[in-house]
């Protein structure tokens, strides 16, 4: 197909503009990939020269920071397991049961959840956790995250389950399955793509959160990476860019790995079997 000159220049202009905008947004990412390997990294973008792994070597020797990554993992996995199980069961019940007012329940929960995990509720949360005696434990962080993320997770999952025909479970029950069997044999595998989405979302939320662990935890041994990253600031509060960049890259790897694993193993997709 031949383009007329005006259309050609219009497309050329559009492409140039798009490239410019793309480059603008890509710059921080490129810095993020280059700086960790640069012995003299600064805030400006530069090719690693000389290319080095010394930054990583130094970061790995920082026990507090490494311990932080492990703590992040404990808290994120704990939160995800709790949110995943509770949200699946609750969303399934909300979707399939004929409870009156179940819609209102979901919306009220959703409304409050944005308050619960928000900084506005930090004082009451601290007081509650302190009263329960869980200050400075992984469990405190996990529970607070679960409480904050559950309503939204339930909301997402309920919508997902609503879109799945009931005839799956109905056919299982007519075939002789109890409701529990029908749930585990048929409903759960069909809902799985929705659960995967919620799990990834919850993991990323806990993994990246700073305020809640910072407030609820006391001891260095329990601090997650989001807090530990501050050990790469000097006494005066200026970042040690080389180490910070290396640690940031390490810190982001588990999330990337999770995405890759999920899309390889489960895929963010849905499979058929119902004839519409």
């Amino acid at each position: 197909m031949r383009l007329s000159p005006s259309a050609f220049f219009a497309r050329l202009g559009f492409s140039a503009l798009a490239a410019l905008i793309g480059a603008f947004f890509a710059l921080p990412l490129i810095w993020f990939l280059f700086a960790p390997f640069n012995a003299r990294a600064e805030l400006g973008l530069a090719l690693p020269n000389p290319f080095t792994l010394a930054n990583f070597a130094q970061v790995i020797q920082n026990g507090f920071a490494m311990r932080g990554l492990l703590n992040s993992l404990i808290q994120a996995v704990g939160g995800v397991v709790l949110v995943g199980i509770a949200a699946t069961l609750a969303a399934y019940a909300l979707s399939r049961s004929s409870l009156p007012g179940k819609g209102a329940v979901t919306y009220v929960l959703l409304l409050f959840s944005s308050v619960v995990s928000g900084s506005a509720a930090m004082v009451p949360i601290f007081l509650i956790i302190s009263a329960v005696g869980l200050i400075d434990t992984h469990l405190a962080v996990i529970l607070v995250f679960a409480g904050g993320l559950l309503p939204t997770a339930m909301f997402i999952l309920r919508d997902f389950i609503d879109s799945i025909p009931r005839s799956y479970e109905e056919s299982a029950m007519v075939a002789g399955a109890s409701p529990v069997q029908a749930f585990f044999d048929v409903a759960l595998p069909v809902i799985r793509p929705g659960i995967v989405v919620v799990v990834v979302w919850a993991f990323v939320n806990v993994w990246g959160s700073f305020l809640i662990p910072f407030i609820l935890l006391r001891s260095d041994e329990l601090m997650p990476a989001s807090v530990a990253i501050y050990s790469f600031y000097s006494e005066a509060g200026t970042p040690i860019v080389t180490l910070l960049a290396a640690y940031a890259l390490l810190y982001s790897l588990p999330v990337v790995a999770l995405y890759l694993f999920v899309s390889w193993k489960f895929g963010f997709r849905f499979f058929g079997g119902i004839k519409a």
Binding site: P165, S167, Y168, E170, S171, A172, D185, V186, P189, V190, F271, G272, G273, I274, K275, A276
Partner: peptide, 9 residues
């Protein structure tokens, strides 16, 4: 069932 309700997995 009208939609067959075959278990996709």
């Amino acid at each position: 069932f009208q939609d067959y309700a075959l278990y996709p997995h």
